[in-house]
C-alpha cells in the first residue's frame, strides 16, 4: 500500500491501455511514453503492461505504508527517499514509513513510477488506465489526490537493477519526428505539405494527453479544412482552419472532422509527449514500409535493453 502525500499537478494510474473500445468513443489511454513505462516495470520485476503511475512535469510525494519496490523513469526529475537523493532508472527499495519525493522535470514532461506488483485498482473495460475526460479507470477516473491509498498487487521478487546509461532516452532540443503522409495529405496544397515538412513547430502549453498543440508556419489547405468525420489514429496530425497542427495522443477523441495531413509513427509518439512547451518539433516523411522497418528496429532495441544488476 502506498499513500499519496502530495499528488503533483497531474498523476494518473496507467497500464498498457484499453483495446476494442474506440468504436464506442473510448480512447485507449495508457502511457504517452511506452518505452519508459515498460522499462520502469521491468526494473521492479513486473510484466511490461502492469499498472504504474504517470506524472506530468512534477512528481508526487508518496509514503510507503508497507515495504515496497519502485523505479522511476521517463522525464528527468530529481528523486529523494527520506530527503536523500536516489537514482532514477534504477530499482529502489522502500521500507514502511519511507517517503519518496519526485521534483520538477529538468528534461521531458512525463515520468513513470512502477511499483512491484503493480497498482491494483479495479480494471474498467479490461484496463486500469485512467481516462480523465471520461472519468474512467484508475482511481475513480481522476488524477491522484492527497491521501489516496494505492493498493498493490502481488509482487515477484526483483533483484535491484539499473537501465544502462546508453539505453536511457535524452529529452529536449529540436526533435525530428517520422511521419507517414495521409490519410488526407491530398486535402492540402503542395506548398502546404512542403511547409509542414520544412518548418519547425513549437509545442504549446495547452498540450495534454489528448493532443500536443503546435504553433508555426501556417499549413495551407486545398479546398476546405473539413471532411466527413472519420476515425483518428494515434499520432494523427490534425490541421484545423487556422493551419496549426495538433498531434493526437493516447486520450484522443476516436473520430473527428478535421483534415489530417500526416500521422506520427508510433515509435516517435513518446518524443512528442516528452517535448516541453516551447520545444521545437520537425517532421520528416517516410513510407509505410520504412515505418514498419523502423518500428521493428525500435521494438528490437527495447527488447535488447539489458538491465544491469547492482552489487
Amino acid at each position: 500500500m502506498i499513500r499519496v502525500l502530495e499528488p503533483g499537478p497531474q498523476t494518473t494510474v496507467q497500464d498498457v491501455g484499453r483495446t476494442g473500445q474506440m468504436r464506442y468513443g473510448i480512447p485507449p489511454s495508457g502511457p504517452v511514453d511506452r518505452s519508459s513505462f515498460v522499462l520502469a516495470n521491468r526494473l521492479v520485476g513486473n510484466l511490461d503492461g502492469a499498472a504504474a503511475l504517470e506524472f506530468t512535469l512534477m512528481g508526487p510525494r508518496l509514503r510507503a505504508e508497507t515495504p515496497c519496490t519502485l523505479a522511476v523513469s521517463g522525464a528527468d526529475a530529481p528523486v529523494t527517499i527520506n530527503d536523500a537523493p536516489a537514482p532514477t532508472w534504477t530499482t529502489l527499495a522502500l521500507e514502511a514509513g519511507d517517503v519518496m519525493k519526485i521534483g520538477a522535470a529538468r528534461a521531458g514532461v512525463r515520468g513513470y513510477i512502477a511499483v512491484a506488483g503493480g497498482i491494483d485498482v479495479a480494471p474498467v473495460l479490461g484496463s486500469r488506465a485512467t481516462y480523465l475526460r471520461g472519468r474512467m479507470g484508475g482511481v475513480h477516473g481522476r488524477a491522484l489526490a492527497r491521501d489516496d491509498r494505492l493498493p498493490l498487487g502481488h509482487a515477484r521478487t526483483a533483484r535491484p537493477r539499473t537501465v544502462p546509461e546508453a539505453a536511457r532516452p535524452r529529452w529536449g532540443g529540436e526533435t525530428v519526428l517520422r511521419v507517414v503522409l495521409g490519410p488526407q495529405a491530398d486535402r492540402f496544397t503542395n506548398e502546404g505539405v512542403v511547409t509542414f515538412l520544412d518548418s519547425a513547430y513549437e509545442v504549446l502549453p495547452q498540450s495534454d494527453r489528448m493532443g500536443a498543440r503546435l504553433n508555426g508556419p501556417r499549413i495551407a489547405h486545398a479546398g476546405g479544412h473539413d471532411i466527413i468525420s472519420d476515425g483518428i489514429a494515434l499520432g494523427a496530425v490534425q490541421v484545423p482552419g487556422d493551419g496549426q497542427p495538433i498531434v493526437l495522443l493516447v486520450d484522443r477523441q476516436s473520430t473527428g472532422g478535421y483534415t489530417k495531413i500526416a500521422t506520427v509513427c508510433s515509435f516517435d509518439i513518446a518524443r512528442v509527449g516528452q517535448a516541453k512547451p516551447g520545444q521545437r518539433l520537425r517532421f520528416t516523411a517516410v513510407d509505410v514500409a520504412a515505418a514498419h522497418r523502423l518500428l521493428r528496429e525500435s521494438d528490437a532495441a527495447l527488447a535488447a535493453v539489458e538491465l544491469q544488476e547492482i552489487a
Binding site: T19, G20, M22, R23, I228, S229, D230, G231
Partner: peptide, 22 residues
C-alpha cells in the same frame, strides 16, 4: 487486426504489423 472504428463512409482498421503487412 487489433480493432476497428466505423464512421459514416470509412472504417479505420488498427493492425499489428508484426502479424500482417500493409
Amino acid at each position: 487486426v487489433v480493432e476497428t472504428v466505423p464512421t459514416y463512409r470509412s472504417l479505420l482498421v488498427y493492425y499489428d504489423p508484426s502479424v500482417v503487412g500493409y
